[in-house]
Amino acid sequence: MFSRRRQLPAPARAAVPTVGNERLLAGADLADGGWVVATTADLATVSRPDDGARLTLRRPWGDVDRAAFDPERSELTVEWVDAAPDLRLHLADPAGTRLPAVLRERVIWSVVLAETVDVPGGQVRVAVRRDLDGTMYSQAIAGDGVDLYRPEVARVVDATESKVRGACGLPG
């Protein structure tokens, strides 16, 4: 599916090995000389060749909370479900890659069902996500200022999680 595979340099491909039915979907040169690579399972970054073209990050699509591409700045921003610092990637040639579209497609693909609920302190998004092998799991992503361990928050989140899991055929 990745029609530009031959154009992704061999060191970048080698740093992101695929396993089983995983496939390389898209890649892009970064302004700093490294690469970003999207597979059917993960988003990965690879350092510049003079840094050894080594894998610097590899996370599954289920770890991506949100992603956005700013074409004016050629910047791709990825927000993580675990509140790790945002990943900001400056693409060297955004016109020469399908990466922003592939990123969007993979994040959407990983979300089976999601519901946002109001809780004391803000909002929580409860989602059922899927892995490459089709395994489904649920996750609760708290908004800023929300304590998932507060009993009144936990009750709402647990009920919502049970509801979305049941709607997907998973045990509550």
Score class of each variant (00 low, 15 high):
residue 132 L to A: 14
residue 129 R to G: 08
residue 153 V to Q: 07
residue 103 L to G: 09
residue 31 A to I: 02
residue 86 D to Y: 00
residue 45 T to E: 05
residue 48 R to D: 10
residue 123 Q to R: 14
residue 55 L to H: 01
residue 75 E to M: 12
residue 89 L to Y: 00
residue 133 D to Y: 06
residue 20 G to C: 02
residue 92 A to G: 10
residue 8 L to I: 15
residue 38 A to L: 06
residue 51 D to E: 13
residue 129 R to H: 10
residue 99 L to F: 10
residue 115 E to W: 05
residue 134 G to W: 07
residue 106 R to K: 12
residue 40 T to C: 03
residue 64 V to S: 04
residue 85 P to D: 14
residue 46 V to T: 07
residue 47 S to W: 00
residue 55 L to C: 06
residue 123 Q to F: 04
residue 145 G to R: 08
residue 72 E to M: 11
residue 130 R to W: 00
residue 105 E to H: 11
residue 49 P to L: 08
residue 171 P to G: 12
residue 149 Y to F: 11
residue 19 V to Q: 11
residue 41 A to K: 14
residue 27 G to M: 02
residue 52 G to K: 07
residue 121 G to K: 12
residue 171 P to T: 13
residue 78 V to Q: 01
residue 91 L to H: 03
residue 38 A to E: 00
residue 79 E to W: 09
residue 34 G to C: 06
residue 96 G to N: 12
residue 69 F to G: 04
residue 135 T to G: 09
residue 6 R to F: 00
residue 106 R to T: 06
residue 2 F to E: 10
residue 104 R to L: 08
residue 13 R to E: 07
residue 83 A to C: 09
residue 43 L to N: 03
residue 86 D to F: 00
residue 58 R to V: 00
residue 47 S to F: 00
residue 167 A to I: 08
residue 162 S to D: 12
residue 48 R to G: 04
residue 109 W to M: 06
residue 120 P to M: 04
residue 8 L to A: 08
residue 105 E to G: 08
residue 139 Q to A: 12
residue 17 P to M: 03
residue 52 G to D: 03
residue 114 A to V: 08
residue 9 P to Y: 02
residue 100 P to I: 07
residue 31 A to Y: 01
residue 130 R to K: 10
residue 102 V to Q: 01
residue 71 P to N: 11
residue 96 G to D: 13
residue 105 E to N: 10
residue 97 T to Y: 02
residue 18 T to L: 00
residue 160 T to Y: 06
residue 70 D to F: 05
residue 32 D to T: 13
residue 82 D to Y: 07
residue 141 I to T: 15
residue 35 W to K: 05
residue 34 G to Q: 05
residue 97 T to V: 05
residue 1 M to Y: 01
residue 121 G to P: 14
residue 74 S to K: 13
residue 20 G to V: 01
residue 43 L to D: 01
residue 133 D to P: 11
residue 2 F to I: 08
residue 100 P to F: 03
residue 148 L to D: 08
